[in-house]
Design a protein around this nucleic acid. Structure first.
Length: 317
DNA sequence: CAGCCGTGGTT
DNA sequence: TAACCAAGGCT
């Protein structure tokens, strides 16, 4: 959960997750949908799929208990160099480094080395430095201290050097060049994609929910029918056309307005319609008709919650 | 190996 | 408000 995610954001998810899945074996025996529901809203849903798959491997190959060495941990889905080092040092007391973005930033300033916190190569190159520093008596506490220093004192912008416990050892500080480290690599601008979405409601007042493919963006989560809008297309016509793919016939259409949402590498601007429909098909593995109060049973996406909010007038944008 | 993969707080 | 960033991993 902590991969690319702040502690404060993950904490409530962690509490609920551990309450529901207290052991590896329990987690392994759960349906993926139940795991995804616990991950709903946390993002990077491949982590949920990976930890579920990893739990099954650990149950089969390790009797339900994680191995203690980084190389074995590294073989499990979702566990890379950082997580392997973190588990091995924190949970098992092994004297190995755990290099996350915080650690790269701290080491970059401490030794005044050009490094990019996001670069996997720079993270790898930082491991020998961290390995040299790690306290063999308390490797877990040391690694967490280094990360915590980066998260609270040695921050990306306006670091609190005056309160830093290793200020006198910091080469960047002594050279008055803290702001020059780590190196900042400019990112690509996220493109904006136009979508149309349909809150399709049948004669029973139920809304059509569809399940996304298990792999890829928001894999396995539920959403309302939506698709990208061709530049020349008219939104309302495109939405009605989209409903035909679900064998639904339009009865009435109402424009509910716009919804915006930012993903990791693109942005969506969606035009949302309420479309009352006649539809012959019932539920299946990938589509369900649900009353508004039932939708909470499903793991849904952030933009879907915004769209459904338009139906009841909540949080208009 | 560069791009894919979420969401929410901070600047 | 738009951009940046976060206890990264996978392909």
């Amino acid at each position: 959960m902590l991969q690319q995610t702040r502690v404060d954001q993950a904490r409530p998810y962690f509490e609920r997750f551990m309450a529901s899945f207290p052991t590896v074996s329990v987690l392994a025996s759960e349906e993926l949908d139940a795991v995804l529901k616990h991950w709903e809203g946390l993002g990077y849903y491949s982590r949920a799929r990976n930890i579920h798959a990893a739990a099954n491997i650990v149950r089969e190959h390790y009797g339900g208990y994680l191995p203690d060495d980084p190389d074995s941990l590294r073989q499990l889905p979702g566990i890379g160099p950082y997580t392997a080092g973190a588990i091995s040092s924190i949970a098992f007391g092994r004297p190995v480094p755990a290099v996350d973005g915080n650690v790269v930033r701290v080491l970059s300033r401490l030794f005044m080395v050009d490094m990019d916190t996001r670069s996997s190569r720079d993270r790898r190159d930082a491991e020998p430095l961290a390995n040299r520093l790690v306290d063999p008596q308390r490797p877990g506490d040391f690694n967490q201290s280094l990360m915590e220093l980066g998260a609270t004192i040695c921050t990306p912008y306006t670091p609190a050097c005056s309160r830093c416990p290793i200020q006198s050892s910091c080469m960047a500080y002594r050279s008055e060049r803290v702001d020059d480290f780590p190196v900042r690599v400019e990112r690509k601008r996220a493109p904006i994609v136009n979508h149309i979405a349909a809150l399709a409601i049948n004669g029973n007042g139920k809304i059509l929910m569809v399940r996304r493919p298990t792999e890829g963006l928001l894999g396995g989560l539920w959403e309302v029918p939506q698709e990208s809008l061709a530049d020349e297309a008219r939104p309302e016509e495109a939405a009605v056309l989209m409903m035909q793919k679900y064998d639904c016939t339009r009865v009435r259409t109402a424009d509910l307005g716009m919804v915006r949402h930012a993903y990791s590498h693109f942005k969506v601007s969606a035009t949302v319609f309420r479309i009352d429909v006649d539809c012959p098909h019932g539920d299946s593995e990938t589509r369900k008709w649900m009353l508004p109060e039932q939708i909470d049973e499903l793991a849904t996406t952030g933009i879907t919650k915004k769209m459904l909010g338009l139906l009841t007038g909540e949080h208009p944008q």
